[in-house]
Write a protein that binds this DNA or RNA. Structure first.
Lengths: 230, 230
DNA sequence: GTCTATAAGGAGATAGAC
DNA sequence: GTCTATCTCCTTATAGAC
């Protein structure tokens, strides 16, 4: 049980400082020198522990996304147990999907930083960054998408996929820059108001998923195409 | 009508290269040396025309956002003329709001770049960047928000503001990284399919705006607060 | 308006002592 | 594991010739 000199703390404080720096200045904009200064660590320590700047970013990601995804899976498992194979109500599904990141986002201190970082990587076109993000998110996405499909069985796949993206987009957009939202709404809306945000998201998108399909249906061909050159 | 030596072209090619570089690498990540190399211009030309790297970014913004906002205002004016003071249908309003950026987004060549850039600045927490963005977007936001309020008069202000943010979030999220969307949906969805994206957005968010209010109403106090410590 | 040359400093990464 | 010192390259920005 004897703690190793200071390794754990050194790694952790570097990760903390890196997380904040990547969120504030972006991956390119953040400098390792700035990070180690904030972390009261030595520059070479970064290379010893993480190999490179990119390795550091990957470590920053895994540390936060791992727990969030575990929560994601667990909440879905609980719903599936509860509804025993039957379709899960859209509202419950949305709540389960949004809760884990929302809990993270409203964790005092680190919450805003993590969400800001997510916003930045989501909008980073760098293929390396995109691939990193995709790997982290793929499994969660798959299982939730399946669950949504079962909950809205008559919605064509294309409609489902579009709407699924809309949910994440709206969510990330609101959470990644909470002070902007508060300022622009004159203080009426603030993402730290978990209840308000969650209930608005559920209200809007449960209605959105239930809205009539608009794509050429691939499941219930009740509405044949009216134009040939759509 | 005599064209000045090559000034116009020099400025334009620098703006083009800068736009792409800022989108690809972010404001910090993009270097002026890279930009002038792409533009086949000289490094000092940037300082002559734009004063600094930041001045260049501001010029990049104004060039694209100016026309988009003009379109925004014009489309709204046309709707207001057509409906002569009466509430504009949600679907028409959404279409008018989404069309100008969508047209820009699907302009061959520059479209993807511009949207990618928007995605990056929207998620940039730098107060300077946020202020720049806010100034550019403020007026359009105000007039459309007013129009939406008139179209959904019974929706409390808080609900309206939340949902308005959701629309922009979903829209930007989808448009700023179209290749990601295409890849992740297995090719089923692509943002360049203007008709599909627009009709999905209208379907989802017209239903979303019409969904029952969830905030404590400030207009139609039909549902008094049940909890005092909400 | 456009160029070269250069100032002045910051970047990621590594070698090697301890 | 942690440190100092350093390599090499790139950055924004400017001065001044043409």
């Amino acid at each position: 049980m004897k703690a190793s000199t200071q390794t754990q703390d050194s790694q952790t404080s570097i990760l903390d400082a890196a997380e904040r720096a990547f969120a504030d200045y972006g991956f390119d904009g953040a400098s390792l020198r700035h990070i180690v200064e904030e972390a009261k660590a030595n520059l070479a320590t970064v290379y010893y522990h993480f190999g490179s700047k990119e390795g550091l970013m990957e470590a920053v990601f895994s540390r936060r996304f791992g727990p969030i995804h575990e929560e994601h899976f667990q909440m879905l498992r609980e719903l599936e147990t509860k509804y025993k194979g039957a379709a899960i109500p859209l509202e419950k599904l949305l709540e389960a999907m949004l809760m884990p990141p929302l809990r993270m986002a409203t964790t005092p201190g680190k919450g805003e930083t993590v969400m800001c970082l997510i916003g930045r990587v989501v909008t980073d076109p760098n293929p390396q960054v995109q691939e990193l993000l995709r790997r982290q998110h793929r499994d969660v996405r798959t299982v939730y998408l399946d669950a949504f499909q079962r909950s809205v069985p008559r919605l064509p796949k294309a409609d489902l996929l579009w709407r699924f993206e809309f949910v994440w987009g709206a969510f990330v957009f609101v959470l990644c820059n909470p002070s902007r939202i508060e300022k622009i709404t004159g203080g009426v809306c603030h993402p730290s108001d978990t209840d308000a945000l969650l209930s608005q998201m559920i209200a809007v998108f449960s209605a959105g998923f239930r809205a009539p399909a608009v794509s050429k249906s691939d499941r219930s061909p009740a509405r044949p195409a009216t134009r040939r050159n759509a």
